[in-house]
């Protein structure tokens, strides 16, 4: 479904991605793990076109992303941002229905609101939340609204950027369960970046370990503990000693 071939990206003198190769099968849930500053977010932004790679190819559904219409390409995606990235100036339901109120997927306002409320219900939020503004919600509720927005247009592919960062363990568990349930019931292809190992075990079918701008190991989540890869071992056990420098 999604294939990254030899992706390179440099910001100034910082060579962030040094040849990322990764394949994400259709309908599977891939989680990219790795320390801060290893290029996880840049990889994700390269796929979405928010950052242009210096070199390499990105294929989605067998098509090079550079050859397809940008709007049509993005219409296949949903994304949950790290801080939810809700628009402060509009109420929750309009955030959720944002894509349904403009552009190619535009619906009548009443229908868009109805879908938004249904998606909010799907992520465990009551209809009363719909007319509140994002600033009136807790961090966990904002994440759920972000999740509702990500699935509002029933996308084929959903990206989750650090979905549990800043949440308490219980809320993290709720978000992890929601992601797993939603991805399964929608049959969507999911790509998550995180360093929360609880999330990894809850969400992932497959795991990729990114370090120093390259994928050091990739495999099924069940094989992660027995991978034998020193980078993966150090990361999943949170050891200070190992090939990954503690101070980067």
């Amino acid at each position: 479904m999604i294939e990254l071939r030899d992706i390179h990206k440099t910001f100034g003198s910082n060579h962030v991605l040094r040849g990322v190769n990764l394949s994400i099968p259709k309908g599977s849930s891939m989680v990219i793990i790795g320390g801060s500053g290893t290029g996880k977010s840049v990889t994700l932004k390269c796929i979405l076109g928010l950052v242009t790679p210096d070199q390499g190819q990105i294929l989605v559904g067998g098509q090079n992303v550079e050859d397809v219409s940008r709007d049509a390409f993005l219409a296949r995606f949903g994304m949950l941002f790290q801080g939810a990235a809700l628009f402060d100036s509009i109420p929750v339901w309009q955030n959720v229905a944002f894509r349904l109120m403009r552009g190619a997927l535009k619906r009548p306002k009443a229908e868009a609101r109805e879908i938004a409320i249904e998606k909010l219900r799907r992520v465990g939020l009551k209809p009363e939340v719909a007319d509140k503004f994002p600033a009136e919600l807790s961090g966990g509720m904002q994440k759920r609204v972000g999740l509702a927005r990500a699935i509002a247009a029933d996308p084929e592919i959903i990206f989750f950027d650090e979905p549990t960062t800043g949440l308490d363990p219980i809320m993290s568990g709720v978000i992890n369960d929601l992601i797993r349930e939603i991805v399964t019931e929608m049959g969507a292809t999911a790509l998550t970046i995180t360093h929360d190992m609880t999330s990894v075990r809850a969400i992932a079918d497959n795991v990729a370990m990114l370090h120093d701008g390259v994928v050091k190991w990739t495999g099924a989540v069940n094989d992660m503990d027995t991978s034998g890869d020193p980078y993966v071992d150090q990361f999943i056990h949170g050891r200070a000693e190992g090939p990954i420098a503690a101070v980067r």
């Binding site: 709007d71 995606f77 941002f81 801080g83 990235a85 809700l86 628009f87 944002f98 552009g103």
Partner: peptide, 16 residues
């Protein structure tokens, strides 16, 4: 603030 909180990126991913 929208840029810092990734709202601009969110707009792009929402085809806007």
């Amino acid at each position: 603030t929208m840029k810092v909180t990734e709202q601009i990126d969110a707009l792009v991913t929402l085809s806007t």
